[in-house]
Design a binder for these strands. Structure first.
Lengths: 158, 158
DNA sequence: CTTGACCTTAGATTTAACTCTAAGGTTTAT
DNA sequence: ATAAACCTTAGAGTTAAATCTAAGGTCAAG
């Protein structure tokens, strides 16, 4: 049995957050002490960890509520319903991964096009790409910066 | 040249949102008409699309501002700075992808363990897993549901 | 020359998810 | 037996990112 502050510390959230989750039906302590203190079981803690994992990955609290709340009402749901929900979330996650991958590729391309040296960013491929949103092209620091102690490199050039 | 409503419609945002972005320094129209109407160029539109792409993938507006604002101040940044920022965002994105993958695997495991049929969810592997957060184990609908017109399947069983 | 669709500003409201405040009761340690 | 650290509730405040409202100016069509 944890008191609210203990569970909060254990899971690195604020006690306020746990009260908030309770108010919103995500997580209620299994017991109260005589004096009314919340008492959380290890199961409660597991549930909290699930919530936090789900949250860390971009689920909203209402999505998490939805995911967890079927449980209160089990017998009125079929496996198909439950699996359907999971599969929708799964599709969401896959979509997000795809979006992130798209962006990761863009960022990688930007990163690769920039020499990353101490030259002024005035001719930086990254900034040019952000400005014009055209295809990333490679830097060529051939103009004189007054700096000659290193070479620029560009992975796109090979 | 687009007026605010045209650009908004084109990019599927509200005109309000564009004013909001302007107020927060993300995107200003290149011109104003005589009567004070905002006039956006194709470049402005590209910039908006970049913002929206970044947003779709989980960047906050202030991260986007940061990413875009270096541009106003180019000569005071070195390529190293710019590339550094991009690489930090890249690492963020990769981290998010990793988190999402972790979750995707969990969801997939849940999905695979559930027969997905019309049986009551009272013995649903998914709900049991959410409840107890223990390892997903396979459903066995051997008890009588009064439903016999199909077989349950479980990918974990093979 | 007016109707309707558009635009302007400033500022209030919304939603999600906390986070904090006030006013007080409980537990533990000294 | 009292201070410090905890807990209670109700309700207000915060932040991000819009979204809406009010009060009015502009513009093209009939």
């Amino acid at each position: 049995m944890f008191r609210i502050g203990e569970l909060a510390k254990e899971c690195e959230v604020k006690a306020d957050t746990l009260r908030f989750y309770e108010k919103h039906g995500l997580l209620s302590p299994s017991m109260r002490s005589e004096s009314g203190y919340r008492l959380y079981t290890e199961q409660d803690a597991e549930r909290l960890r699930f919530i936090l994992r789900a949250k860390a990955v971009g689920f909203t609290l209402s999505e998490i509520t939805e995911l967890l709340s079927i449980d209160l009402d089990k017998s009125n749901w079929a496996c198909a319903d439950v699996k359907g929900m999971v599969d929708i979330k799964l599709a969401n996650v896959e979509e997000k991964i795809a979006e992130l991958n798209h962006f990761r590729v863009s960022l990688q391309r930007l990163s690769d096009a920039c020499c990353g040296g101490p030259e002024s960013a005035e001719h930086c491929s990254i900034l040019e790409a952000l400005e014009s949103n055209v295809e990333v092209k490679c830097e060529n620091h051939s103009h004189d910066h007054g700096e000659t102690e290193y070479k620029t490199s560009c992975k796109l050039k090979g």
